[in-house]
Design a protein around this nucleic acid. Structure first.
Lengths: 249, 249
DNA sequence: CCGTTTTATTGATGCAGATCAATGTGATTA
DNA sequence: TAATCACATTGATCTGCATCAATAAAACGG
C-alpha cells in the first residue's frame, strides 16, 4: 500500500506499478480497494488459494471475448482494460474502462457466458477468480457474497450514470464528466488527481461517450485554449477542476 | 401461473392481473420469473416470512426516491414502474422500466442508499424485501445469494445493451429495439408478443431512449405507414416482427 | 534510423434529430 | 357532458455534432 501512496510523479501511470505476480492479497497494494476487503484472515487465506495470478497481457490482447467459454471473473491487478459489446452490424460500444482493483466480467454471471469483450489497453495483469471455486467458497463465506453484491451494485450504479451521460449530456459535459471520473479513480489509487495518462485512444474515449473522434479532439483543444486543461499527447493536466466540475451538468 | 398463461386478450395489460396481496410465493403466478426460483420449500417458507406485500401504488406515486432512507429492495408484483436519475441541473434520465417479477433498487446495495427514483406508471403493487432481513437470511441460504447475484448481473447486462443503444443507434433502431424488448418481456409473462399496452407516456419512452417526444411520435407514425405496426393510442400491435428485427441494428 | 502505419488534429460541409409552433385527442373533474 | 388539462401528433426550422477531407504527429517494424 505504501508503494502506491508514495508515488505520484508527473505522468507516471499505473502500468509502471507492476509488482510480483505472486504477492498474496494481504500484501497487495490494492487490498483496500479490492474484493477481500472485510474478510477475516482465515477467509482471506482461503480466497487467496483459489486466485490465479496470471501472466501479463500485452496492449490489444483480449482477456476474453464473447466467444470464450465463461470460466472466471477478473480483477485488474496492474494496467487497464476496456470492455466492448457489438451490435449485429459490427458497430461496437466501449462499455467501460477498468483500473486496478476493479472487476471485469460481472455481467457474465447471469447466463454464465461472457456478454462483452475485454481487452488490455496497455501491458496489464489480472487476478483470475475461477467462478466455480468462488461460488463454492461463497457458500460458507457470506461476507464474500456481500462483497460481490456490492461490486455488482456499484457497477450498476455507474452504468445508470452513464445512461444519463449518453442520453442527456452535450459533448462538453460528456468530456468534463469523463475527465473528473478519471481524476477520482486515479486519486483513489494514490495517484495525482490532476495529472495522469489516458491509456486509451481518442477513438475509445469517443466511442465510450457516444461522440466522434473529431469532437473529442476539438473539445479537448478548446478546453486547453480556455485554460481548463493542458494536453501532452496522452497526458492530461487538469488546471481548473472547479470550472470543469461546473461543466458536468 | 395458470392465471397468466391463459390470459392473452387484445390489450389486456398486466395491471388487470391484480391478485390477492397476501398470496404466498408458492402460489404466486410470477414464481417462475421471480427471486425464489430454485429455493427449497423450507428456504422458500423462510423467505416468504420476511416479504412485506404492500398496498398498491397509484399512477405517478413514488415507490422511493433518492431522498428516502434505503430500507428495502422491491419486486414488482403487478403493474409497472419507471426509475429515473437526475443531473444537478434538473435534467432527468429514465433508466429503466420494470414489470412483474423484476427487481427495483439493486443499485442501492452499494452505499446502502437509493441512487434513483422509482415511480408507478399505473396502479401497481410490489413485494417488499427488507434488506436487513434479506441479508440475515442470505447467510444460511447461499442459493438466495446466487439468485440475487444473477438478478444484478442480468440488469447489468441489460444496461450495457442500453449503452450501445444510446451511444450508437439511430432513432429508428432505438424504437425497433424498444418494441422488441417489450414484446419479449410481455411474452415471457404469458402475454401476447404482438399486442400490448405501453403503460408509460411517449415522453418517458423518448427520455429513456435519448430522443425527443416528437421523434418518437414521428417514427411510430412512419412505422405504421410502412405496415410494421398499428398504433391505437397506448396500444401497439406488431405487424411484422421480422422486419422490425431487421431494423434493430 | 527511416519508411510505413496508425492515431490525432483541424477545417469545411451536411444531416439526423432537436426545438419551436400549432393543432388534435384523450383523460379527468365537477 | 362540458370544461379543463395533460399528452400526442404533425409541420417548419434550426443546430450540435457527425461526416468528409486533408494534414500532422506519434508509434511501430525492420
Amino acid at each position: 500500500m505504501a508503494q502506491m501512496n508514495n508515488v505520484t510523479p508527473l505522468f507516471k501511470d499505473m502500468a509502471k506499478l507492476e509488482h510480483d505476480h505472486r504477492v498474496a492479497c494481504q500484501e497487495c497494494s490494492l487490498y483496500r480497494l479490492c474484493l477481500p476487503l472485510g474478510l477475516h484472515n482465515k477467509d482471506l487465506a482461503q480466497l487467496d488459494k483459489i486466485i490465479k495470478r496470471s501472466q501479463s497481457h500485452k496492449r490489444g490482447e483480449a482477456l476474453f471475448t464473447t466467444e470464450h467459454a465463461f470460466k472466471s471473473l477478473y480483477v485488474v491487478r496492474s494496467g487497464s482494460f476496456k470492455t466492448t459489446i457489438s451490435a449485429t452490424n459490427g458497430r461496437e460500444q466501449v462499455t467501460g474502462f477498468y483500473f486496478p482493483g476493479e472487476f471485469i466480467g460481472l455481467d457474465a454471471l447471469y447466463q454464465e457466458s461472457y456478454q462483452s469483450n475485454a481487452q488490455a489497453l496497455e501491458t496489464s495483469s489480472v487476478c483470475e477468480l475461477p467462478f466455480d471455486s468462488l461460488q463454492e467458497l461463497g457458500k460458507d463465506m457470506p461476507q464474500l457474497q456481500v462483497q460481490l453484491l456490492s461490486r455488482l451494485s456499484k457497477e450498476l450504479s455507474g452504468d445508470k450514470s452513464l445512461m444519463l451521460l449518453l442520453g442527456k449530456k452535450t459533448a462538453d459535459e460528456k468530456l468534463a464528466t469523463f475527465l473528473l471520473s478519471f481524476s477520482k479513480r486515479f486519486s483513489d489509487r494514490g495517484f495525482s488527481a490532476t495529472e495522469f495518462h489516458l491509456t486509451m485512444s481518442r477513438g475509445d474515449i469517443a466511442n465510450h461517450l457516444g461522440l466522434a473522434v473529431e469532437t473529442v479532439s476539438r473539445v479537448f483543444s478548446r478546453f486547453q485554449e480556455e485554460g481548463l486543461i493542458t494536453i501532452l499527447g496522452k497526458g492530461i493536466v487538469l488546471r481548473d477542476i472547479a470550472k470543469i466540475k461546473g461543466l458536468c451538468g
